[in-house]
Write a protein that binds this DNA or RNA. Structure first.
Length: 805
DNA sequence: AGCACGCCGACT
DNA sequence: GTCGGCGTGCTC
C-alpha cells in the first residue's frame, strides 16, 4: 500500500512536519508529490501538500486521505526542493514555504457546516427543523451568530444532525457556456428547411454555423451578435439534438481591451553588444552565473533583457522577469508583450485573485514562455528555466516582509543554480550588497554607461532650505523651484513634484542648521517619541530628552518634521491657482486602475503638475516633463535605518531621471536641509561610484552589510515585563552560542514599540560567518515555544532584514 | 490553529 | 448530581 507524506495547512511549530496518510485504492498511482490533497486532521479536514510517496510509515495508525484537489501536481520537484531550502533559510513553517509558491486563489477555504441527515428530518426539534425547511445544510458560523448553537449541538449529539468540514480552493476557474454543432453541415441545411417557418432565429443560428469554416463552438454573446439569437434559441436547438452545450474553461484576460504592437529586436549599441555577449555565452553553455547589469537610466537595459530572453526562447526555454511592483506599468508590460506576444504571462498585485490564478495556470500548462511579474513571480512553476532577470535590483520591495521573509534575489540565484542558467540583476543604482559582490567578482559586472539617444542627463540644482528660511521664505517651495514652476506653466511644459511621505514626523531637526539628533553609539538618527517626549535609538536602546534649542547652533527653530501631499496640494492651489494638479498617493490610487488613469491623463497633458510620492519615481516617461522638484530630500535620510543614505541616493537619482528624457532638456531641483550630506550631494552630481565608496566606508564603520550579515529577532507579548525578560534571555543565549566575532545588539524596544497592544522588543545580530546560526535560531524558536510561562509570546526572526521595524 | 478531553466550581 | 469554565495536549 502506498502512503503519502503530507504537510498540513496548520502553521504552528508542533505541526511543522509531515503527516502520513494511506492512499485509497481509487487514487493509487494518481496521487503525486506536489499535489494538494484534502486530509482528515484530528476531527476536521484540512488542505495539505504531498511531499513524497512511500511504502512504509512510522506512524501507528494511518488515516486515508480524502481526495486530491488537483489532477496534476501544482508544485514540481524543483519547487518542492526549493521549499525545503526556503524553510531553512528563512526559518518559516514548511507549509508557509509551500503556500507562498502558489497564487492566493489556491489557498484553502474552510467551512464548518451542519448538515441534516435526511432520514432524521422528522426527529428534529421544531425550532431546529425550521432552519432546514428548504435546505439541508447550515453554516456553523451563521448558527453561532444567530445563537442557535446550543440547540443544534443537542441535535448533533442525538445524531439527527452531522458536522461537516468542507475544504475548497478559494479560486474558481472561470467557465463559459459554448454551443457546438452536433451534426454535419449537410444535415444542418436539411434541418433549416425542416424547422417551422416562425423559427427565424434558430435558422439564423444554423446558417451562421454553416458559414463558419470550422467546428468551433460559439458563446451566447457570439450568437447574439451574429444571429441575434438568445440563449433560449440555442437551447431549443440543443434540445433538438442539433447543438451540444459545453461548459468551457476560459482565462480571465486583464489585457483583453488591449492590442500589442509587435516589435522586433533593435540594433544594439556597441556597449550593449559588449554587455550582452557574456550573457548569451552563459545561456549557450548552460552555465549558472550572476550578472550585474549596471546601466544608467535610459541606457537600454530593457533591450538587453529582451534579446537575452530571445536567445533563451529560441532554445525552447523559459524566462522569469521580475520588476518592482510600482514600475510594473502598462508601458513595461507592453515592451514584453510586444516582443513575445501571447507567450507572456503577467503577475502583479493589480490583478484580481482570479486573474492571477489564470495567469499562473498559463504558466503551469506551459502555454507561455515568459513571465513578467513582481516579487512572487520568482516562483513561477516553470520546469525548463533559461534565464532570470531582476530589474531595479536594489528595490526594497523584493524583500517579503511577512513569512517566509525571503528576498527574491536569493531565491532567483537558488533557482538559477538548479537550472544552470544565468541571473541578470539590473540597476542604475545597485544595492551596496550587489555592487560589492560584483567588485569582488562573485557577480560578473556588465556596464552601460551611455544613454541610448545620447540624451543629456538633466541638470540638477540643490537648494539649501535653511538659506530659504534665513531669507524669510517659510513656504515649502524655494524661490528657485517656484520660479521654475511658473516658467513651465507659461511654456506649457510639465512638472513632477516629488514628496517623500516616509519618515513623517519621526525625527527632530533644526531648521536653521540642519542638525538632526543622532545616537552616539550607532550613528543612526534618533526617533522622536511623542508619547514619552523623548528621543530614542532603535538599535541599541539609547534614550535622551528632546532638546529645546539646537545643540549645534542654539537656534530655537528645532522641531519635528513632516509634510503630506495634501498639504502641498493646498499650498499649490494658493500660490499657483491656475495650475492643474494631479495628486498621486495611496489615497488617490487605491482603486483598481486609478494609477494608470491618472498617469494617462497626465501623459495626455491634462495637467501641468504631477504631485506624488514613491510611486511616481519610476517608469514615468513623458516627453513634456522638463522639471522635477523634490520637495524634501532628507525625510528618508533620518529614518532609523542603516540603509537610509542608500535609499535616499537611489530615490533622488531615480526621480531625477524623470526629467528631460526626450528632446527638451530637463532640470531637477532638490530641496534639502542637509545639502552637504553625501547622498544628496552625490545624487546631485549623479555619481554612483563616489557614493558607493563613501557609503562602503560608513557601512564598514558601523559593521553593517555588506561587511556583516544581519538577523533581526523581534519578540512581542501583551505584557511588557514578559517581553523584556524573554528578550534578555534570548540575547544572553545568543551571546553564549555565537562566535566572539559576532555582535549581538539589544535587547531594545522596536521602532514601533507597541502594535495591537503587544509590546515589541528586538535584538540584532551582526555576523560574518556563523554557519550554525540557522540551527541556533531554530533552537530559540523551539525553546521559547516550549516554555509554559511564554504563552502568547511571539518571536519572529528576519534573516537579512530590510525593514528594521 | 482547532478541537476534545478532563478536571474543578456554581447551579438545578 | 450536572453544566460549563478554560488549562493541556494531540492531530498520520
Amino acid at each position: 500500500m502506498k502512503i503519502a507524506s503530507v504537510i498540513v495547512d496548520v502553521p504552528t511549530m508542533q505541526t511543522d512536519r509531515a503527516f502520513d496518510y494511506s492512499i485509497p485504492h481509487a487514487w493509487q498511482g494518481k496521487i503525486l508529490p506536489g499535489m494538494r490533497v484534502i486530509v482528515p486532521f484530528g476531527p476536521r479536514k484540512v488542505q495539505g501538500f504531498v511531499i513524497g510517496i512511500k511504502d512504509k510509515s512510522e506512524a501507528k495508525k494511518l488515516k486515508d486521505l480524502v481526495r486530491p484537489m488537483d489532477l496534476t501536481p501544482v508544485l514540481n520537484e524543483d519547487l518542492l526542493t526549493m521549499a525545503d531550502w526556503l524553510t531553512k533559510q528563512t526559518l518559516c513553517f514548511k507549509i508557509s514555504a509551500l503556500q507562498v509558491m502558489l497564487p492566493a486563489a489556491m489557498k484553502a477555504k474552510y467551512e464548518k457546516k451542519i448538515i441534516l441527515n435526511p432520514v432524521k428530518r422528522d426527529f428534529l426539534d421544531e425550532e431546529a427543523a425550521s432552519l432546514f425547511i428548504n435546505k439541508d445544510e447550515v453554516s456553523w458560523k451563521d448558527a453561532e451568530e444567530a445563537g442557535l448553537l446550543p440547540l443544534l449541538q443537542k441535535e448533533i449529539k442525538s445524531g439527527n444532525l452531522d458536522v461537516f468540514y468542507s475544504v475548497k480552493s478559494k479560486g474558481r476557474k472561470k467557465t463559459v457556456q459554448k454551443f457546438y454543432p452536433a451534426v454535419q453541415r449537410e444535415k444542418m441545411k436539411e434541418e433549416i428547411d425542416a424547422l417551422p417557418a416562425n423559427a427565424e432565429k434558430q435558422k439564423a443560428v444554423l446558417r451562421y454555423f454553416i458559414s463558419l469554416n470550422s467546428n468551433e463552438g460559439i458563446t451566447t454573446k457570439e450568437a447574439a451578435d451574429s444571429a441575434g439569437a438568445s440563449l433560449a434559441v440555442l437551447k431549443s436547438l440543443a434540445d433538438k439534438g442539433l447543438l451540444i452545450k459545453k461548459q468551457e474553461e476560459i482565462y480571465r484576460n486583464p489585457f483583453s481591451h488591449k492590442t500589442f504592437q509587435k516589435t522586433s529586436p533593435l540594433p544594439l549599441t556597441e556597449e550593449q553588444e559588449g554587455a550582452i555577449a557574456p550573457i548569451l555565452e552563459a545561456i549557450e553553455q548552460k552555465k549558472h552565473e550572476t550578472f550585474l547589469l549596471y546601466g544608467v537610466t535610459g541606457s537600454g537595459k530593457t533591450e538587453v533583457y529582451l534579446q537575452s530572453i530571445q536567445q533563451v526562447y529560441e532554445q525552447g526555454k523559459e524566462a522569469i522577469v521580475l520588476v518592482p511592483e510600482i514600475s510594473l506599468t502598462p508601458q513595461m508590460v507592453n515592451r514584453f508583450k510586444g516582443r513575445f506576444g501571447n507567450d507572456v504571462a503577467v503577475l502583479h498585485s493589480g490583478l484580481s485573485a482570479g486573474e492571477k490564478y489564470d495567469e499562473w495556470r498559463k504558466i503551469q500548462r506551459k502555454e507561455v514562455k515568459v513571465v513578467v511579474g513582481a516579487r512572487s513571480a520568482i516562483f513561477a512553476p516553470f520546469e525548463n528555466l533559461g534565464i532570470i532577470i531582476i530589474d531595479e535590483e536594489h528595490e526594497a520591495s523584493y524583500k517579503q516582509e511577512e513569512n517566509p521573509r525571503y528576498h527574491a534575489r536569493d531565491v532567483a540565484i537558488y533557482r538559477a543554480k538548479q537550472y544552470h542558467c544565468p541571473v541578470i540583476l539590473g540597476s542604475a543604482t545597485p544595492s551596496m550588497e550587489t555592487f560589492a559582490r560584483a567588485q569582488k567578482g562573485v557577480y560578473k559586472q556588465l556596464t552601460l554607461s551611455k544613454r541610448m539617444n545620447a540624451g543629456e542627463l538633466p541638470s540638477v540644482s540643490i537648494v539649501d532650505m535653511r538659506e530659504e528660511l534665513r531669507s524669510g521664505n517659510r513656504s515649502m517651495f524655494s524661490e528657485e523651484l517656484f520660479e521654475k514652476l511658473q516658467d513651465r506653466l507659461h511654456k506649457g511644459e510639465q512638472t513632477v513634484l516629488f514628496l517623500n511621505r516616509r519618515g513623517h514626523s519621526s525625527f527632530i531637526m533644526c531648521r536653521d542648521c540642519g542638525y538632526v539628533a543622532q545616537c552616539p553609539q550607532c550613528d543612526i538618527s534618533l526617533t522622536y517619541h511623542r508619547f514619552s517626549n523623548s528621543m530614542k535609538c532603535h538599535y541599541c536602546g539609547y534614550e535622551t530628552g528632546v532638546p529645546e534649542t539646537c545643540p549645534e547652533c542654539d537656534s530655537e527653530h528645532i522641531r519635528y518634521f513632516g509634510t503630506g501631499t495634501q498639504k502641498v496640494e493646498e499650498e499649490l492651489a494658493k500660490l499657483l491657482p491656475e495650475a492643474r494638479v494631479i495628486r498621486m498617493d495611496v489615497d488617490t490610487t487605491s482603486r483598481k486602475g486609478s494609477h494608470e488613469r491618472l498617469l494617462d491623463s497626465f501623459g495626455e497633458g491634462q495637467a501641468d503638475i504631477l504631485l506624488g510620492t514613491q510611486m511616481i519615481a519610476k517608469g514615468l516617461d513623458f516627453p513634456n516633463i522638463t522639471l522635477v522638484g523634490v520637495l524634501s530630500a532628507d525625510t528618508m535620510l533620518h529614518l532609523p535605518d542603516f540603509r537610509s543614505a542608500e535609499k535616499t541616493f537611489q530615490l533622488l537619482t531615480q526621480v531625477s531621471g524623470r526629467a528631460g528624457r526626450h528632446e527638451l532638456p530637463g532640470e531637477v531641483v532638490i530641496q534639502t536641509y542637509t545639502p552637504e550630506h553625501y547622498s544628496i550631494e552625490l545624487a546631485g552630481s549623479q555619481d554612483y561610484d563616489a557614493f558607493y565608496h563613501k557609503e562602503m566606508i560608513m557601512r564598514k564603520m558601523g559593521s553593517y552589510p555588506p561587511f556583516y550579515y544581519l538577523s533581526l529577532i523581534t519578540i512581542s507579548h501583551e505584557d511588557l515585563l514578559k517581553v523584556v525578560g524573554a528578550a534578555e534571555k534570548i540575547t544572553k543565549f545568543l551571546q553564549s552560542r555565537l562566535s566572539p566575532q559576532s555582535i549581538v545588539l539589544g535587547p531594545a524596544a522596536s521602532p514601533i514599540p507597541r502594535i495591537n497592544n503587544r509590546y515589541r522588543y528586538q535584538c540584532l545580530i551582526k555576523y560574518k560567518r556563523e554557519p550554525e546560526l540557522p540551527s541556533i535560531l531554530k533552537t530559540v524558536l523551539e525553546h521559547s515555544q516550549q516554555q509554559k510561562a511564554s504563552e502568547g509570546l511571539t518571536i519572529s526572526i528576519d534573516v537579512n532584514p530590510y525593514m528594521m521595524m
